[in-house]
Design a protein around this nucleic acid. Sequence first.
DNA 1: CTGCAAGTTGAAGTCCACTTCAACTCAAGG
DNA 2: CCTTGAGTTGAAGTGGACTTCAACTTGCAG
Lengths: 149, 149
Amino acid sequence: MQESLTIGQLAARSGVAPSALRYYERLGLIRAERTGGNQRRYARGELRRVAFVRIAQQVGISLEEIRAALDSLPASRTPTAADWAKLSTAWRARLDEKIRLLSKLRDDLDGCIGCGCLSLRRCTLYNPEDKLSGEGPGARLMLPEGTPD
Amino acid sequence: MQESLTIGQLAARSGVAPSALRYYERLGLIRAERTGGNQRRYARGELRRVAFVRIAQQVGISLEEIRAALDSLPASRTPTAADWAKLSTAWRARLDEKIRLLSKLRDDLDGCIGCGCLSLRRCTLYNPEDKLSGEGPGARLMLPEGTPD
DNA sequence: CTGCAAGTTGAAGTCCACTTCAACTCAAGG
DNA sequence: CCTTGAGTTGAAGTGGACTTCAACTTGCAG
């Protein structure tokens, strides 16, 4: 069994184009050794990083944020369980928030709205306790206090 | 109480910049009446559409896909509960899939990986039953069958 | 040893989701 | 009326995430 992968192999296994992998490397998301002839060789652990990047990206997290998260992993050695756990703790809140938002969108669509409750004022989507604050520059309450619907 | 909103008012209430609202209109995501002097006036229902757009967008759904979904709502009348419910049904699967992906990312981070199980081969993230197929051009299994980790 | 698929680089191009700009008009209070 | 803040347009600019291209080099099967 090989212990390192060419860019083509990593691309095939991760489902990410070689050009994207080179781009990720420029951004510092993944790393590669070089052969004598200057070709990239990836340690098997990079597969895990690529998977992490793609999944995080698919749910709307920017590459810059992902990079910041991955930077918490040690560069000098293969990350241990404890390293990944630390990253996990840091991301727990934001993942929980995204999951909450998604579940709400889904449930409101076929629950609140689907059930005939058309006054969004009373729906969870607009409820003050569910403020969208924090995420992004434009995020604020959809309906200010005291606004009728 | 006013029954229509200016672009500035809709912007303030939705947390979306006026320039973005005009852009959304060009893409057919929202609609506006015009005053005699050619200014936009939004029906209150547009607030709901803007909220829908922003939430869907925040979880990684493109404006084009959102437009397609909103197109299933009637243009000629204010959408009823049944209209929104239909949209809901159409999106149920994709929302469920996103939620599953997110939950997995979170749980794997502080469960599987956090527990010391470093062989991702055995982790849900890489498990064949969880193929990433369908979503996007590059999506395929992270590790092909028979690949050791 | 050779042929050719696969790899390398930097620069330029593309698509999306907006924002900014310039030049102009509208709406409403004093 | 007149001023001023809010709104209008089309065109151009921005930033993120890549892809494509051209010109060149490597690595391995035959």
